[in-house]
Amino acid sequence: MELIWQGTKQAVLLLIHGDPEVLRIMLLSLQISGTATLLSLLIGIPSGTILALSRFPGRGIAISLVNTGMGLPPVVVGLFVSIFLWRSGPLGFLELLYTPSAMVLAQMVIAAPVVTGLTVAAIQQLNPRLRMQLMGLGASRLQVVWLLLKEARLPLVAALMAGFGAVISEIGASMMVGGNIHRQTRVLTTATVLETSRGNFDMAIALSLLLMLLTFGVNVTLTWIQQRGRTP
């Protein structure tokens, strides 16, 4: 208990004094995971909408692959992204390995199936008659899709929270493609592992608490947006 108390005290002191290194790590964590989540939304929402509304051969297999991707181990994602970005890999010429961009790419691969799968579920849970009514009223295909997404906005915000939660807390992929380089690719999760390996448990606990505080703050904001959009 004393160790936990010391870690909590250390976290409060780091926040009060505004430690530049810790603030840098927190901002980089938010920047990388936020960018990855945004990119996963740009991929996942259109893909999920197509899977939910379209009928084509292999659709069931595609949805099964998406659902499988929702449980992809981060270390597996990190391994394959590393292979692709390695000097002799297909994307080695980009020289992205051990950079924040590589971490964004890996986290996007983790978050995209989560957003896609939850988007499919959000669209499919709508009343099938709604789509028919919209088409009967003369709405174009794009208008129908927009109105369906608007109707499903609450579960879509939940998909956003799930995608962000999946990447802000992951460690395996970030460590493998980012390398945990000081002042370059070190984020809260990798810094916590480093401090633990050094035996600095109070600092590791402090960083863990800051990670939870950051995640809580983002989710409080998204929850407020979600609940604000509810129909009374």
Rank of each mutant, 00 (worst) to 15 (best):
F93W: 15
L27E: 03
V220C: 07
I205C: 08
A191Y: 09
G7C: 03
M135L: 05
I171K: 12
L14P: 11
L160V: 14
G69S: 08
I63F: 12
R183W: 10
G18I: 09
V145H: 07
A159K: 07
V81W: 04
W86Q: 14
I123T: 14
T215L: 06
L105M: 15
P46L: 01
T8D: 11
T37K: 03
H17S: 06
L134N: 04
R186G: 04
E2F: 11
T8M: 11
G229P: 00
V77Q: 07
T116W: 01
T99M: 10
Q227S: 10
L27V: 09
G117M: 06
L142I: 02
Q143M: 08
L39W: 12
G60I: 10
G69E: 07
A206K: 02
L142G: 15
S208M: 06
R131T: 09
T215E: 13
L51K: 02
R198V: 13
I4R: 09
T185S: 06
I61N: 07
V12W: 03
S140A: 02
F56K: 01
G89E: 02
P20W: 12
A36Y: 07
Y98N: 04
M103N: 12
F84E: 11
S82A: 15
R59I: 08
S40D: 11
P20C: 10
V177Q: 06
A158P: 05
Q143D: 01
L194D: 14
M135H: 08
M103D: 01
L142P: 12
V120H: 02
G172C: 02
W5M: 12
A166I: 01
V193F: 13
S82D: 13
P90F: 09
I168E: 02
L130H: 07
T185Q: 03
G89F: 11
R153H: 08
D202L: 11
L211F: 05
R228M: 11
V66P: 05
L51W: 03
E170W: 03
A112P: 03
I61Y: 14
V193L: 15
I50Y: 02
Q143S: 06
L154D: 12
S174H: 13
L210W: 10
L210M: 10
G58K: 01
F93P: 14
V66W: 00
Q184H: 14
